[in-house]
Design a protein around this nucleic acid. Structure first.
Lengths: 142, 142
DNA sequence: GACGAATGCAACTGCTGTTGTTACACTTGG
DNA sequence: CCAAGTGTAACAACAGCAGTTGCATTCGTC
């Protein structure tokens, strides 16, 4: 996997779960399906749990399941849960700045980038997990 | 600098140039203002030149200037010139896939991410360099 | 209560992308 | 010819991230 693997893994997993919401999945199962490692899965899904999107149960017969209906989870929820800041990536304030024009410009660029970031989140809010994995999914028989 | 420094540097520089379109700037000048290195500047601006946004002149008294009016350059132009693919980052096709459900899901996730990427570019297309550095810029006396 | 199966977490490795830097070839105006 | 530029390659340093191992903890089941 390359870039954006966290977001991709999260979406993939949530989408899977949307198919059978009641089934509890172990991180090993998920890792096998996603072609990765149980620890990596727990790292990513842990963020989603913190955000209230997933529930995890420890101990024997434990595992992961959705904390709410798939159509109540938007891509923005996932994106924000993972602390991703794709466009507005804190690319400011390294040096005390040489002149006021510079600070002004830097601030303006950061401002514009922040706006774009907000637009991105708004766009993400329009899509739910159900949109990724629709009810009558042709790949899914469940 | 951290992430997105290329996009940030490009925007910063273009915005600067928008203030005095006729002035030819050397990469050393630009690097000093941006707090980085001339070679880094040439790397980034080189991409913008390939995309037809900038012109560079070699030799004595050479340097960089805008290839067209600032209000004719959108952030999408810059973004695409830099080959940035923030959301849809080739996070697919590593393994030959175990079952058809997996391939289907992977494809669907990639599809959704691609859509988001397209939306992002569309949003970027709405903003020009002039929007970043308006005519009556309060920081700029030129 | 012991055991097995699961999460949670910390530490470490290795890979990769990016920035910064140096060095050098090439170009051009004076 | 020379000084001041770009263009480019090569390298070091660094940061982020996936992957891995190990271990503590929790919880069903026998």
């Amino acid at each position: 996997m390359k870039r954006n693997s966290r977001l991709s893994l999260a979406l993939h997993t949530l989408s899977h779960m949307a198919g059978e919401p009641n089934r509890v999945r172990t991180s090993t199962d998920i890792a096998d399906h996603a072609g990765t490692n149980p620890v990596v899965v727990r790292r990513v899904l842990g963020k989603l749990r913190e955000a209230g999107l997933l529930l995890s149960e420890k101990g024997h017969a434990g595992g992961w399941r959705l904390a709410k209906a798939a159509d109540g989870i938007t891509l923005a929820d996932v994106y924000l849960a993972l602390d991703e800041r794709l466009v507005s990536g804190t690319a400011t304030a390294d040096q005390p700045s040489l002149c006021s024009v510079e600070t002004g410009l830097h601030a303006r660029v950061a401002e514009v980038l922040d706006d774009i970031e907000k637009s991105l989140v708004e766009r993400l809010r329009e899509t739910t997990i159900t949109d990724v994995h629709p009810e009558g999914c042709i790949y899914c028989e469940s």
